[in-house]
Nucleic acid binder design. Sequence first.
DNA 1: GATCGACTCTAGAACGTTCTAGTAGCCGTG
DNA 2: CACGGCTACTAGAACGTTCTAGAGTCGATC
Lengths: 329, 329
Amino acid sequence: MSRTTLADVAAEAGVSVALVSIVMRDAPGASAATRARVLEVARRLDYQPDNRARLLRSGQSRLLGVVFGVAHPFHDDLLTGLYDAAERVGYELTLSAITPRRDERAAIAGLLQDRCAALVLLGPLIPSAELATLTGRLPVVAMMRSVRQRQVDVVRTDDARGLHLAVDHLVALGHSRIAHVDGGKHQPSSADRQKGYREAMRRHGLEAYIRVVGGGPGEEDGARAARELLTAPPTAVTVFNDLSAAGLLDVLRREGLAVPGDISVVGYDDSSFSSMAHIDLTTVAQDIETMTTLAVARAVERIDGAAVANREVVIPPRLIIRGTTGQLD
Amino acid sequence: MSRTTLADVAAEAGVSVALVSIVMRDAPGASAATRARVLEVARRLDYQPDNRARLLRSGQSRLLGVVFGVAHPFHDDLLTGLYDAAERVGYELTLSAITPRRDERAAIAGLLQDRCAALVLLGPLIPSAELATLTGRLPVVAMMRSVRQRQVDVVRTDDARGLHLAVDHLVALGHSRIAHVDGGKHQPSSADRQKGYREAMRRHGLEAYIRVVGGGPGEEDGARAARELLTAPPTAVTVFNDLSAAGLLDVLRREGLAVPGDISVVGYDDSSFSSMAHIDLTTVAQDIETMTTLAVARAVERIDGAAVANREVVIPPRLIIRGTTGQLD
DNA sequence: GATCGACTCTAGAACGTTCTAGTAGCCGTG
DNA sequence: CACGGCTACTAGAACGTTCTAGAGTCGATC
């Protein structure tokens, strides 16, 4: 388990440590001949650069810390996009997970001592004041949540507009008794989505039909909401997210309601599983590629000390019409 | 964005750098009085230790690299357990994800230059020879997959036995026409589970009823298998994993089959979503806590250079009986 | 043939920490 | 009072890298 270092390679190749460093970094200052020879020796000795020493010396880490939650399938989709975006700009990602027994604060603390250059938080739940104090130490980009504090950058979907799209679509199909399953008070984007729902209903003159049932981010929350709805089923329902919608769908179908025959359902997120044939959920898509690209770009701008014009970027959502919504008879 | 270092704290507190280091590490060699004073100054200057420098100097990194796949919900459950287990033995975790555009090799390469002390791989797909070469550099523990090469440690569930449990349970309920939905040739544990199914069927004298349909690890694979089964439905089916079982269940129910009335279904993994009321899946549980604890323990033993008696640890599974299996009329 | 510039290379300091080897003071013991 | 053995502390090297400053070499230019 002995690590070969620059010094080993240098000794073997008969050159200085500095020169080997130059070659490994592909920096100018070495002849083609020695470059080849050093590379050959490095390969032979199975040299692996030590990132830690490298970052320690060079000061800047080209490393983004990402906090995600194991309970959120949609976070997996975002991680995929973040890896792509980071690679494009030459950054690495370090991940820190939130688990049932490891909260957001612990996840963030883990990243802080890794000296990453900036933090990207997926739907952070901690108070925004706390996020603001973090910015004293490094740039912070919050995704999928708005933050009042001016120091924190935000990249999010226009969630109110997302629910406008959903309600408009349902109204166009002839629905008026449209309910909304909420995301619960712990979900940052929950309020915006509910607000969007209410606005859209009012705009269509349907305030009399406004009905919000308590829910949450998980499948079981949707299932619970479905049972509550069944007491007096509406003809359509918009749901906080896809996972919750999946739970709701399952209960509805099991109780013998046809979707979309008896009731139409719209989810939110366009999680990768929502497109699968057997779910086939009409949903509001967050533009993952744009969001992740912008979040990474924003983090890098801050790291580079660039001036940032609009600290809050709001991306328009897209309605994806699939099989869970249909014309009202 | 200026980070305060040990030297800053030392200067402010009027002591040496070494003493501050002692205090921060909670090591013996400082009086209670100075300890308190130094801690106070550190807090006031908002000192954060630099993990990189710390690890660089102390040689051993107390850091485990974990490779997981964003497409596998069960991996999220394992991550949860791994975090717990690592914390108990005083190790940290660095995660590296496999995404649709970032393969296992890339994920591993990312961890290697972080100089983590060992690698824990969740159901690795790369050839075992390649895993073996990795062990030249650092200890490697593969979970949920057997590896012939002697250098690689393995912690896995006794998958064959898992399917024995499932088949035994179904037979006890009166079933004989029991089919198995496979995990596909890319899933390492697929072969063991299929083998277990065949053995158990034979043991019960049911070889005539053996029927294996092609599947895979995802929800859509299960849905596809369900459509294939529908041509001549068996009375029970064992499925490669829970995710696939969920897809299968959905298609079956949609086609009007009652579960477990017309057909019983057994999953595998006991993923967190399988216990939810609306899925309520009978399944073979992998013992997450034991597996993750042992995987971490094994990694640590190797790091410490301890001799390892049995390099392959096989954990017995447990059958969790829920609502998708029932007596055959 | 001296001077310049480009090119290749090297010595040694730095990054922020831990570790080794020590120094100084103090107390108890014979 | 010399000695040993604590306790509290410190100087300085070390970890593996990058970076700065500069030293040689060589050919071209004046």
